[in-house]
Every structure is written in C-alpha cells, then in structure tokens.
Amino acid sequence: MDLVDLVFVLSGLLCLGSACAIVTRKNPVYSVICMLPFFIGMTILFVLLSAPFLAAMQMMVYGGAILVVFLFVIMLINLRPEELKDDFSLQAYAPPAIVGGMLGGLILSFVRHGIPAESALDRAFSLPVVPDANNPHLARSMEMLGFGGHAPALGSIESISIPMFKQYVVPFELISLLIVVAVLGAVILAKKRV
C-alpha cells in the first residue's frame, strides 16, 4: 500500500463518514456543515483522478456557492424546535438491512459465478497518465491556436476547454440556456406576492 492508496482510502472514508453524518443529523444546520468535509474529500479524490481543474471548480461552486446558499436558506426559514424531532420516516433498522442485503447479494453472486476478471479498463486505470501523446486531435488544436504542438495533460484547462468548444458545444450552450431559465425561475418563485 503506497501513498496514493493511503490518500485514496482516507479521503474515501472522509466522504463516506461525512455523507452518513449529513443524512443522520437531525438539525439541518449540522447537515450543511457536514457538507464541507464531504466536498473536501471529493476534491482530494478528483486531484487523485487527475482532474485538477474539476477539483477547483468543485471547491468553488459547491463549497463556495451551494453550501452558502443552503446555510442562508436554513437561517431564513427559522425552523421551530419541535419540527426537528422525529425526522426519519423509515424505521431505524431499515438502512442496515438494505446495505446488508446488497452486500450479501454481491457475495452470493461472487460465490455462484466467480469473481470478475480484470478487464482492459481496469488495467488502463492502473497505468500512469502520459501527457496525452496518443491524442493527436488535441495536439493539432493546440498547434492551430498557436501554443505549440504539445498535447495538454488530462484534466488541465486546455484539455477540457478544447473538446468543450469543439465536440460538446451544443450541450454547453444548452447548459447556459438552462442556467438562464433556472435563475429566472428562482427569482419568480421567491418573489414576494403582493
């Protein structure tokens, strides 16, 4: 077990623990505050998975914007203390039963059908990321833009932005349309009726 495995296990456990804390706290303020270690763990995981730009975006948008909006709304709506009691609608033993059943089914399928062999994707995941010598499209785009003929590394801003504005430009524009509609809808919904 080397350092990458250790960091992966620790950040994964941080994510799982804080996710459980988010779901099980009765006071929603504690739930929102437990979102912060969850997002920090996800950021470490994204850095490990060679997505540094996505990690920065995760920390800015989730940790900076969404979390603050949730906290702001909780302070705005001012819950009464008696609403915080008796918050769970399922019985206390239902979640362990569900998880135990899923794990039991997994082990039963392994016992009956054997363990899945390592696929080509598993082997490709274990290889180190080369600075993308095998993507000539990215290198050609960088040369056309005047940044030399070297392909950028996976997860850098260049390697995300070039496909975003070439192949995925239609979903990108649709996302912008969606955000405009969402902002207008939020303003109209939250506007005080007279």
Binding site: I66, I160, P163, V187
Partner: peptide, 27 residues
C-alpha cells in the same frame, strides 16, 4: 477522440446542473 476529456466535461455540466437545481429547489 475526446472520450477521456468528455467525462470531465460532463462532470462540469453536472456541477452547473446541481447549482441550477439548488437555486430552483431552494426558491
């Protein structure tokens, strides 16, 4: 040719959709 980058691009799209969903849901 952009399969690997496409995963991260769609993760960015998911961040945008989550922000929009939080705004509308909280409204």
């Amino acid at each position: 040719p952009y399969a690997a980058e496409g995963g991260q691009i769609f993760a960015l799209f998911i961040i945008a959709i989550a922000a929009a969903e939080a705004a509308v849901g909280l409204a």
